[in-house]
Design a protein around this nucleic acid. Structure first.
Length: 660
RNA sequence: GUUCCCGUAGCUCAAUUGGAUAGAGCGUUGGCCUCCGAAGCCAAAGGUUACAGGUUCAACUCCUGUCGGGAACGCCA
């Protein structure tokens, strides 16, 4: 599929360059879709700005552009309107041609060597530049269970990852979990003190413990020896932890920590013992970490989040002293009130004093700023990241601004310490690593208050997802009980549909809002069959599949050969064709703007255009169309719309149903 | 107190980063099933974009101020 906006932009750009020597790039031609169809399909707004620079009249500039423009293969003769807008109206033959050139889905589907099915790209090419992009996403604290606040960084991060992968980049989904520090000393000590009813049978063997070590960045080889040794001298299995309710467990430990000074003292000692890698403590910590991660991954499974790398704070632990040392040597960090700090310029605190990034506390310990800097260094110098994205709540906005400012002071680049690394050398020729904080807004209850339980506690993400599925199940069951609406689905089918629709509804509702704004979690709105919702989108998709099934009697399919008879005439056909062909423009925009809500908006427009196209009153007949040409044209439109919906939803991490 | 973000239709949200008459959905009102999935479609009403100035061909968007809401601000993450 071709990017029409880009083509027009290039054509206009050529004129700008040849006539006035305008530097291209940055969309100098200012081509965009028209706001109103009466102005055509696309418009160029460059004449006004250019006229000012050249000292000419805007309409004269527009006239000159048109006189030199070679675009008759795509559009009707452009028109000048208003102060100097140039309006373009696409030719139906051009649209027909563009649709015909979209490759068919291979039948049977092509399987890759990896076992995956080749993704339908609707004929959209991959980007020629392939960036390495770590995305810091989800990142729950392993001390507690995941709560509703983790929904946004998880779902948005995954969608951004999928979109960038589709464009052609190499994405690493990094789960920067909180798995280190004071809280974990407390929890580990609590486990060792009180093997109560919270801990039941769950056996963690040697292999599992060592595989856990792998993702912590601790010195795997020597620690593995320690653990093996411990197992030999004691009874295997080594770690027995199964926590019924992680949240409740944390609350109890915290309560004991606050009330019992003696326990608190031992908890603090446990932190030190953990830092020193004492096997007994380390093994308990690994077991707890494993247990907690399992809770998270159950959620990720429900949300169909895959390829997440659990690389938490502990992973960078060994790097921290070196980072502080390096910053001191570079003169970036200084001592202040006993702590080692970086003072990026432009940040002021309560008293107007410069605001520090504390990289070593006065007691010698390291905080999250140090970990974040170490992670930046690792991602830049070891992973060779071209772009680093953080999907993290907007409360941390200032923290990231300071972090990025500190990075500029430090100057880490994509080269590694070893100069013989050729890949690194090649990468180092490129630009500096770009750092982006996608600051997510808050999730609010329907009344606009913060999302808490009646008791003021956090709402577990698991409970919220369960409720979504339950509500869908109830709806589907009610439909089946209604003689007018029932479709004869089995309980198993209903269960499957409830899961797909329920999770899709939550994710889609999330993604259809701008990531930065606070939004209200409204069940009715989210599960509504009208409006910009997952159920509406899935319904449109299911209808299309139904049409294609009906048309496919006798194994008939649209193929490239048949498509040569495609002719667009009816306004509904033209509208749908134009909408379909905007897909590449949205993908292009997403590559730089990282805003999944642009995609939801597009998909909603597309489904709406389809509903109008297919409507009894306003639309056209498809399967039983007036003639063979109309039938084939319309079936092609249906097929492509279905594929676009499926592809678009898949880029958001949302599945589809052939029936619902 | 300082800094940053936000304020758009009755409600929930958009607005392609300065472009033409600010768009959707819900709700309200009125139409459309002899027909491929009506879980749908069409139409109407609804706005001084918090307020006051400014910048320019053009401002929801940029600048200044006011009011209202939120967040961050030295050893928690």
């Amino acid at each position: 599929m071709q990017n029409i906006r880009q083509i027009i932009s290039e054509r206009v750009g050529q004129v700008l360059q040849s006539q006035w020597g305008v530097q291209l790039g940055e969309n100098a031609a200012q081509v965009r879709p028209s706001g109103d169809t009466k102005f055509g399909d696309y418009q160029s707004n460059c004449a006004m700005g250019l006229a000012r620079q050249l000292g000419l009249k805007p309409r004269d500039v527009a006239q000159a552009i048109m006189a030199n423009l070679n675009i008759a293969d795509i559009c009707e003769p452009p028109e000048i309107a208003g102060p100097g807008f140039i309006n373009f109206r696409l030719k139906p033959e051009y649209l027909t041609n563009a649709l015909d050139r979209v490759p068919s889905i291979p039948h049977p589907p092509v399987e890759l060597a990896t076992g995956e099915t080749l993704q339908d790209r609707l004929g959209m090419p991959k980007s020629t530049t392939r960036q390495i992009i770590p995305i810091d996403m989800s990142s729950p604290n392993l001390a507690k269970e995941m709560h509703v606040g983790h929904l946004r960084p998880t779902v948005i991060g995954d969608a951004v990852a999928r979109i960038l992968e589709f464009i052609g980049h190499q994405v690493h989904r990094l789960n920067h979990v909180g798995d280190w520090g004071t809280q974990f000393g407390m929890l580990v000590q609590y486990i060792r003190d009180i093997p109560d009813q919270w801990l039941t049978d769950k056996i963690l063997g040697e292999d599992e413990l060592i595989s856990q070590l792998d993702s912590t960045g601790l010195d795997e080889a020597s620690l593995a020896d320690l653990i093996r040794n411990m197992i030999r001298t004691k009874e295997s299995p080594v770690a027995v932890i199964k926590i019924q309710d992680l949240e409740e467990f944390y609350i109890r430990a915290k309560d004991k920590f606050d009330r019992d000074p003696e326990f608190a003292q031992r908890a603090r000692q446990a932190v030190v013992r953990l830092q020193n890698h004492e096997p007994e403590i380390l093994v308990t910590w690994l077991a707890f970490r494993s247990e907690s991660l399992e809770h998270c991954h159950k959620i990720y499974e429900i949300l169909t989040i895959e390829n997440l790398i659990d690389r938490g704070e502990s992973f960078y632990n060994e790097m921290l002293p070196g980072v502080v040392q390096e910053l001191l040597e570079k003169g970036v960090a200084v001592e202040s009130d006993g702590a080692i700090c970086v003072f990026p310029s432009g940040f002021k605190g309560r008293d107007g004093e410069p605001l520090p990034l504390i990289i070593r506390k006065s007691d010698g310990g390291f905080g999250y700023a140090t970990t974040d800097l170490a992670a930046l260094k690792h991602r830049i110098t070891v992973m060779h990241a071209d772009r680093i994205i953080y999907v993290v709540g907007n409360q941390q906005k200032q923290h990231f601004e300071m972090l990025f400012a500190a990075l500029k002071m430090i100057g880490w680049k994509k080269e590694t310490d070893s100069p013989d690394n050729q890949i690194a050398q090649a990468k180092a020729c490129g630009s500096l690593t770009e750092t982006i904080h996608l600051a997510t807004g808050m999730l609010l209850k329907e009344d606009g208050s913060p999302f808490k339980t009646r008791e003021g506690g956090t709402v577990k993400l698991k409970d919220l997802l369960n409720e979504a599925v339950e509500r869908c199940r109830a709806f589907l069951q009610a439909n089946e009980a209604n003689p007018e609406k029932q479709r004869g689905y089995s309980p198993e089918q209903i269960e499957h549909m409830a899961k797909v629709i329920g999770i899709a509804a939550v994710k889609y509702f999330e993604l259809s809002h701008h990531y930065g704004t606070d939004y209200r979690f409204d069940w009715e709105e989210m599960l509504a069959l009208e409006g910009n919702t997952a159920p509406y989108m899935l319904y449109a998709y299911a209808r299309i599949q139904s049409i294609l099934r009906k048309s496919a009697n006798g194994g008939e399919r649209t193929t490239n050969n048949e498509r040569q008879t495609t002719v667009l005439t009816h306004p509904a056909e033209l509208a749908l064709a134009k909408q379909l062909l905007r897909f590449p423009e949205i993908i292009e925009q997403l590559g730089s703007e990282l805003r999944p809500n642009l995609l939801t908006e597009y998909l909603y427009d597309l489904s709406k255009t389809f509903s109008t196209f297919y409507d009894r009153k306003t639309g056209v007949r498809v399967v039983d169309a007036e003639n063979a040409v109309a039938r084939q044209t319309r079936l092609l439109l249906c097929e492509l719309t279905g594929r676009a919906l499926k592809l678009g939803l898949s880029l958001l991490g949302i599945g589809t149903l052939d029936r619902m």
